[in-house]
């Protein structure tokens, strides 16, 4: 059986690297893996997603609605946008910090993300809210968000890896000067 993972957010939040680390961890464990993501036109400021599947019997990187085991959402409205892909009772890790698109700014919209979070709370799912902005401040880097989200996702137990395994592949992937910050981020909020 495969684990179906959907990572979503807004361009520039580090979603692609998150997806690459999960894939690299799967390769390390000898598990088949496939992924697909938005590339190109919508790089900056657009909605970005990455479908990722780990396990046996995979035909294609994308899956249909209602099939994701976990939704890792870097932005509240993006979580709601991709929610139809989550299976019943699936896990959502969501960053509570909303990003207002420029079109909304122009139209004087008052989008804050609160209404999205309220909607998510009403769904049949395991919901974890992360204050990503606060977490990044505590770690001391706005670039820590993706590893904070990934650490939380791994600790939820849905992904077939441990934080230690992810940490090992992270060390091989990022530049040496960022290893410490990313390690801190992966372990952020670990109460053990």
């Amino acid at each position: 059986m495969a684990t179906n993972i959907l990572i979503c957010g807004v361009g520039g939040q580090g979603i692609v690297l998150t997806s690459k680390l999960i894939a690299a961890a799967a390769m390390e464990s000898g598990m088949p893996v496939m992924s697909a993501e938005t590339i190109g036109m919508a790089q900056k400021g657009g909605s970005v997603f990455s479908f990722l599947r780990v396990g046996e019997g995979l035909h294609c990187p994308m899956f249909a609605q209602g099939q994701a085991d976990i939704l890792i959402a870097f932005e509240p409205a993006e979580a709601v946008r991709m929610l139809p892909y989550l299976k019943k009772g699936g896990r959502i890790i969501v960053n509570t910090h909303a990003i207002m698109p420029v079109t909304a700014t122009l139209q004087g919209s008052d989008y804050t993300g609160t209404e999205m979070l309220e909607y998510l709370k009403k769904q049949e799912c395991e919901l974890t809210l992360i204050d990503g902005t606060k977490a990044c401040e505590e770690i001391g880097s706005p670039r820590a968000l993706n590893m904070i989200m990934l650490g939380q996702a791994v600790r939820s137990g849905v992904l077939p890896f441990t934080v230690g395994e992810i940490e090992e592949v992270m060390k091989k992937t990022v530049k040496p000067q960022f290893v410490e910050m990313n390690s801190k981020a992966l372990n952020y909020g670990d109460t053990k």
């Binding site: 807004v10 400021g45 657009g46 709601v80 079109t103 999205m116 769904q123």
Partner: peptide, 14 residues
């Protein structure tokens, strides 16, 4: 078929 979600902000490429 969950209840209709709140209006989602559109994010066209800019």
């Amino acid at each position: 078929s969950p209840e209709t979600p709140p209006a989602l902000p559109v994010r066209p490429p800019v």
